[in-house]
Write a protein that binds this DNA or RNA. Structure first.
Length: 426
RNA sequence: GGAGAGGUGGCCGAGUGGUCGAAGGCGCGCCCCUGCUAAGGGCGUAGGCGGGUAACUGUCUCGAGGGUUCGAAUCCCUUCCUCUCCGCCA
């Protein structure tokens, strides 16, 4: 959601940012709508002013028992009522039209976001470790899981359809261990507050984080008009909706382990094998709420928190700067962490860390009082820290052994009762 | 699910048709007094949009959205939420 004043003062920058996203310029359209709205409001204000003054006099006249004067004044303002109502109606229509346009516009891009059309134009920012050399042909996670008898796509399909999985025994426990490890890391080492928040949310919450109105087809809606969260970014960020924070409270940092639900409409045929792309998956999310001048450093910090997870697991990864064409509409800058998957022989996204600026805060009226006591919109950030379903894949493929068993990363062993590997013999 | 009560400024809370953007309190800010284990006094203090260099000023906002009225925090309708009692259930 944009501040029209800002667009008015920076129309070129605004359109340039849209263009980088491959969208049409909109500043002229926005400003035209706003001009029309302003003209209406001005006229309306004038009428309301006259009416208010007269009404006050009528009240005084009646209080003094001067019925003649009151009647005279009443006659004077008789036609104003219709005008004001008409004006209000026009203003409503125009404001709705303007808001509808603004609500659908993507966020600005930061200058250091690389230009590009799609994921092929993303730019590597950094890299951790090197892919392990196997002296056998590494398998994909679903081969490993099925051979272990602890990952079952067939029964999942019978129960729920495609893009679901059933995990059992140690593999199920491994995913639980990953979630616990990440939560403990973020709460103990990184200063995040653990949160359990709703998985079903109202439309307003999804609007606040930007999934609505334009991306409704990506999420599941319930029969009672709620939505299953596609990410706990929604629940966590909306924790500050419609609030007035004080500057001493900032930054706020929240983390949560939740299931996420995605319709995956439009990704038919992509990643159909295995559990890389599911309708339901677990993810540890990080959300930060900061003062405007702190959000960019918080972005780097949050990336570091997500990287710490990967370093702890000792899984090779690279960090990518998403290019303009590959970024989500609500974000100003996004860094993805891509884990090395030996079975696929490629890097795949396992975390996405983004800064939204005040885009979400405006949509959810999340403000704080700055040092001067002046209300300002906060900045919001979110990042996966990290997706546990995909972390499971990464651990299985990177830690696989020739006999199909899987070594357990050291940091997870305490969460696995001291177990050091997963094998079929169980 | 049934019955009832209520949603007011950063927070608490008064206000049932006219001079209410709204008493009082808390919190916060500035100033003064005091000088000893802690307090006393004064003043100021909502947000959005618009006009003005500024002082200032117009308008809107009392959960949200409509309506009635010359005039609505106050009346009516819709809706969301909270609380109490009953029922049901984990």
């Amino acid at each position: 959601m944009f501040d029209v004043k800002w667009i008015r003062n920076n129309p070129e920058a605004f359109d340039a940012s849209l263009k980088r996203r491959g969208a049409e310029p909109q500043s002229a359209h926005v400003l035209a709508l706003d001009d029309a709205r302003k003209a209406t409001v001005q006229q309306l204000n004038e009428w309301q002013g006259t009416r208010n003054a007269s009404s006050k006099q009528i009240g005084q006249a009646k209080a003094q028992g001067d019925e003649d004067k009151a009647q005279k004044l009443l006659a004077e303002v008789a036609d104003l009522k219709a005008k004001v109502q008409q004006g209000e109606e026009t203003e409503r229509t125009q404001t709705a039209e303007l808001n509808e346009l603004l609500a659908g516009l993507p966020n600005l891009l930061l200058d250091d976001v690389p230009d590009g059309a799609d994921e092929n134009d993303n730019v590597e920012k950094s890299r951790f470790s090197e892919p392990r050399q196997f002296n056998f042909e590494p398998k994909e996670h679903y081969e490993l899981g099925e051979q272990l008898g602890q990952m079952d796509f067939e029964i999942a399909a019978k129960i729920a359809g495609s893009r679901f999985v059933v995990l059992k025994n140690d593999v199920a426990r491994l995913e639980r261990a990953l979630g616990q490890y990440m939560l403990d890391l973020h709460t103990r080492e990184h200063g995040f507050t653990e949160v359990i928040a709703p998985l079903l949310v109202r439309s307003e919450a999804l609007f606040g984080t930007g999934q609505l109105p334009k991306f409704s087809e990506d999420a599941f809606q319930t029969t009672d008009d709620r939505w299953l969260i596609p990410t706990s970014e929604v629940s966590l960020t909306n924790l500050v909706r419609e609030t007035m924070l004080s500057h001493e409270e900032l930054p706020l940092r929240f983390t949560s382990l939740t299931p996420c639900f995605r319709s995956e409409a439009g990704s038919a045929g992509r990643d159909t094998r295995g559990m890389l792309r599911q309708h339901q998956f677990y993810k540890v999310e990080m959300v930060a709420v900061t003062a405007p001048d702190k959000s960019l450093e918080e972005h780097e910090r949050m990336l570091g928190c997500a990287e710490a997870v990967m370093k702890g697991l000792d899984i090779p990864y690279r960090v990518m700067r998403l290019c303009s064409g590959d970024m989500g509409a609500t974000m100003m800058r996004t860094f993805d962490i891509e884990a090395w998957l030996p079975g696929q022989n490629t890097y795949r996204e396992i975390s996405s860390v983004s800064v939204a600026g005040d885009y979400q805060a405006r949509r959810m009226e999340a403000r704080y009082r700055d040092e001067n006591g002046k209300p300002q919109y906060v900045h919001t950030l979110n990042g996966s820290g990290v997706a546990t379903g995909r972390a499971l894949i990464a651990v299985m493929e990177n830690y696989q052994q020739e006999d199909g068993s899987i070594a357990i990363p050291e940091v997870l062993q305490s969460y696995m009762g001291g177990q050091t590997e997963i094998s079929a013999a169980k």
